[in-house]
């Protein structure tokens, strides 16, 4: 059994901007984690399904289209429904400062806006996510 942290990096909705998501996926992998990237145009249902199937410890959501309030909420609701709230959810993209309290209230642990460094994100995951079996 692997003791690596398993992270699903996901692109919910119709947004096609995946530069950030792919860079973060790669940085997490270079930091020794198992990373599953969903590809574009995923529904919240598909993302939660992948996270459960892959026994993910964390989900990173990337949205630059402005649909974050609706789509983050759907992901969080589904995790609750599936009793999977132990999965740590974090996000990034073009997300205005004033939306962050709302997202955190939903249970999203951290939001990384434009200008965040990869090290910050890697450190966040290492400090907040425990791999299974540890």
């Amino acid at each position: 059994m692997s003791h690596k942290i398993r992270v699903v990096v996901a692109k919910p909705g119709l947004d096609g901007h995946d530069r950030g998501a792919k860079i973060v996926a790669r940085a997490l992998r270079d930091a020794g984690m198992e990373v599953i990237y969903t590809g574009l145009h995923q529904t919240p249902e598909q993302i939660v399904e992948v996270a459960l199937q892959e026994d993910a410890n964390a989900i990173g959501l990337s949205i630059l289209s402005g649909a974050h309030k609706v789509l983050f909420k759907k992901v969080m609701d589904l995790l609750k429904e599936k009793n999977a709230t132990d999965i740590v959810v974090f996000g990034g993209g073009v997300i205005p400062e004033k939306d962050i309290p709302y997202l955190k209230e939903l249970g999203v642990k951290e939001i990384f806006g434009p200008g965040s460094s990869l090290q910050e994100i890697v450190d966040f995951v290492k400090n907040n996510v425990k791999p299974a079996g540890v």
């Binding site: 909705g13 119709l14 947004d15 402005g66 649909a67």
Partner: peptide, 22 residues
Amino acid sequence: DLPTQMGLDSSDPMAEGEVGKV
């Protein structure tokens, strides 16, 4: 907006949260 760019009506389930955004 993205639903238009993806050839979807605003009423499509995939359009939720995206209508009129970008």
